[in-house]
Write a protein that binds this DNA or RNA. Structure first.
Length: 197
DNA sequence: AGCACGATTAACT
DNA sequence: GTTAATCGTGCTC
């Protein structure tokens, strides 16, 4: 028997961003396309917190691009970067405070054939081990910007997964931030599950 | 209207 | 280790 889906509620996201980033590890990112589930366990996240965080897009204030981060928690913030990649974030904290968690990597678990058709040129371990790669595998683009991750109607949500103990979590500095001044370049706001067999 | 740059990836040497 | 690909965004003129 299949266990009923358990979609993370808005109250999960309406908390401190670092807490959400940590607890999203082990959760299941689910995309439904043509009635088929494509999913994977979240294994890497990063927190972006407020206008004072100079690594966060919200440092520019409320603009057409960042306005979603100022909205209610539990929505998807999807943006385009480097002229070719879509990035998926979950908006966190109270409405009016701009913050989000970047989903950086998942481990494929459902919809393997569909992911293979999109990412099959690479070995399976490389299908979804980067933020631009997982959006490619799950077919996520700008049309998902602002959708409600707490609703089944979005065809994109996150379910409770197995919890990850502290001993299996590595915490470090965020990656890919160029020309971002300290301390923002070094704050340990990156969370990843230690890979193991 | 023009410009520099970026929360990256894949294909090189 | 290095670098091209590629374009939306926000800032300056």
């Amino acid at each position: 028997m299949k266990v009923p889906s358990n979609i993370l509620p808005r109250s999960f996201y309406d908390r401190p961003t670092l807490t959400v980033a940590r607890e999203l590890l082990g959760a299941l990112l689910v995309r439904v396309e043509d009635g088929v589930r494509i999913a994977g366990r979240i294994v890497e996240t990063e927190a972006y917190v407020g206008e004072s965080d100079l690594g966060c897009h919200a440092k520019a204030g409320r603009t057409p691009r960042t306005v979603i981060m100022y909205g209610e928690a539990g929505r998807a913030y999807v943006y385009f970067n480097y002229g070719m990649h879509w990035m998926l974030n979950a908006v966190t904290e109270a409405e009016g405070f701009p913050a989000a968690v970047l989903i950086r990597a998942i481990e494929p678990s459902e919809g393997i054939e569909i992911m293979a058709s999109r990412r099959g040129k690479q070995p399976r371990a490389r299908w979804t081990d980067g933020p631009g790669k997982l959006t490619q595998a799950l077919n996520i683009d700008k049309s998902f910007s602002g959708v409600d991750l707490c609703s089944r109607e979005s065809s994109l949500w996150i379910e409770t997964g197995k919890s990850i103990s502290d001993e299996n979590v590595t915490i470090g500095a965020r990656v890919g931030l160029n020309n971002v001044p300290e301390p923002w370049n070094s704050v340990p706001w990156r969370f990843l599950v230690k890979t193991r067999e």
